[in-house]
Amino acid sequence: MHEVTLGMNGTTEDIIVLRDLSKVYKDGVEVLALDRINLDIAAGEFVAIVGPSGSGKSTLLNMVGLLDTPTSGQILLKGIDVSRASPNERARLRNKELGFVFQYHHLIPEFTALENVMMPMLIAGKKESEARVRARELLVSVGLGERMDNRPNQLSGGQSQRVAVARALVNGPSIVIGDELTGNLDTKSSQLIYDLLRDLNKRINQTFILVTHDMVLAEKTDRIIRIVDGRIVCEMRRQGDEFVASEKCDLGEDGGEIRRD
């Protein structure tokens, strides 16, 4: 195991800690996608990352999801610095510690709903029988007990996305990451997915980080982080039914208002 190194303010309670995280894309022109981001996310938090397109919110999510590597700075996952981990180690951590739900469900069309949910466990090398039992439980808990043997083309968009949520949860990850996960769904299906995530958050203390530009969804989370030009410009936390801006909130830079898209 890695030696446990804690961040400056990081505690073992913090599942993810970002320290001065920067990402520069050098694709012809240099683009500063993330500019010295500092962020701590604790276990059981339900976080939304918002911001205009091209603000860097997806880049940030890819960093947290270990799909991309930072140019500088640190990513601490459960206290362990993973920012320089090898591709294989990152793959192992994605499998074990992270769950992903994207805008499109990206279910494998040749596999049934059940088999798609089993996939991360099979990648981990777990026994098929064990994976089947676990996947079945999760599909029941996302309300798809009746559709387990359907293939993705026999499922609606909302149902597919619920399968994708079950798949994200199957290995018991520390964090589930959602990138515009309701972006392709109608209001009713979006509401269903949100209710599901909220329920999981409460019931099993599952940490969620969702990138969205749907403010209706964002305002149902507990913490909203607004990113503009690669910087966190505003952070708000739920207190009861209200959101309270933290001292970090630089209202001047961003017009100071959360717009409803």
Partner: peptide, 16 residues
Amino acid sequence: TSEIGMLMALGATGRM
């Protein structure tokens, strides 16, 4: 391509 990307996100290594 996109399914391969998803499998990688789910933890499949390049070797797999």
